[in-house]
Simulated scan of single mutants.
Amino acid sequence: MTVQLCAALKIITLMKQQAVTQKQLKKSLIEIKENNELLRDLSRQDALTGCYNRRGFFEELRKRLSNDKNEGEKAIMVFADLDCLKTINDKFGHEEGDFAILSAAKILKHSFGNSEIVGRIGGDEFVVCAFLDNAIDIPSMRNHIEAVTREYNIKYAADKPYIIHTSVGVYPFVCSATLEIGELLSHADILLYEEKKRKRSILKSDYE
């Protein structure tokens, strides 16, 4: 009986140790999963602005375009360029340049809302994909971005020796899983170039 009792106690002890080990293992697996998700998110995120980086933007947009509920829905691709970043860096330093980049990201996020996909794909280049419930009105959209930009400059950059502003190209499209994201960006980039060229001609005429 003593031998049987000792054996039973040993088995109970081993079972308790096994339960503790399983609990610790489960906790470790949860921590590993959470860390992997964090690393995945960091690999898709721009460190300065918190926007998606190029990889994150492409992955998130591909996921949205592949979603059946978005098939046939209207959307826009916006290619935005922070004006005069090189001048800000050269004259006022890279810390001010970072402030301007971060400000441009905040302006775009505020202009389109948190549900839209906002990415920083280059030093001064941003992209936004917005899915629209209403008819696409590009002039009104530009006016809205301008209004948000003016408000931001008044509230948060009034003491700066420069104005934070972006040029944008807006390309409307209809969602489909077969769309090439790079092609959408190219169309928006062409419209951005035309917008910058138009702005340069206006500035030139102002000084003539």
Rank of each mutant, 00 (worst) to 15 (best):
Y52F: 15
D189T: 04
V118A: 05
D206L: 09
T166N: 12
K27T: 12
R62V: 01
A75K: 04
G93I: 00
N153K: 11
R40G: 08
D46Q: 05
V174H: 04
Q17I: 00
M15W: 07
D137M: 06
Q45R: 13
V128N: 04
N134G: 08
M141P: 02
F112A: 05
K91R: 13
G72W: 00
E183Y: 08
T178G: 07
E73A: 14
K196C: 09
Y52C: 06
I190G: 04
A147F: 08
D41K: 10
D46S: 06
K199H: 12
G182E: 06
S176D: 13
R54I: 02
I32T: 11
L192M: 10
L184R: 03
G97S: 11
E95P: 03
R44Q: 13
V20I: 13
I11L: 14
I117Y: 04
K23L: 14
E151K: 13
E95I: 00
L179N: 12
A188G: 03
A7R: 10
T13L: 10
E59V: 01
I190L: 10
L42T: 09
L203Q: 13
L39I: 14
E59C: 02
N67D: 15
Y207W: 09
S115Q: 09
E31R: 12
A100F: 07
N53T: 07
M77L: 14
F99G: 01
M1C: 06
F131I: 14
A19N: 13
K27V: 12
L184H: 02
E180G: 05
K74H: 10
L29V: 06
V148H: 08
F112R: 00
C129D: 01
T2K: 04
A104P: 02
V174L: 09
D83T: 13
E96T: 01
A188N: 03
A105R: 01
S28V: 07
F131K: 04
V168Y: 02
D124K: 09
K69Y: 15
K23W: 12
K33V: 08
H165E: 13
D189M: 05
I88R: 02
R64D: 10
H165G: 15
A105N: 07
E34S: 15
Y52E: 00
L85V: 08
R54C: 03
I138D: 05
K27D: 15
L82C: 11
T178M: 10
E31C: 13
P161W: 07
L184Y: 04
Q18T: 04
F79D: 03
K91Q: 15
I30V: 15
A75F: 05
G113K: 00
E146H: 05
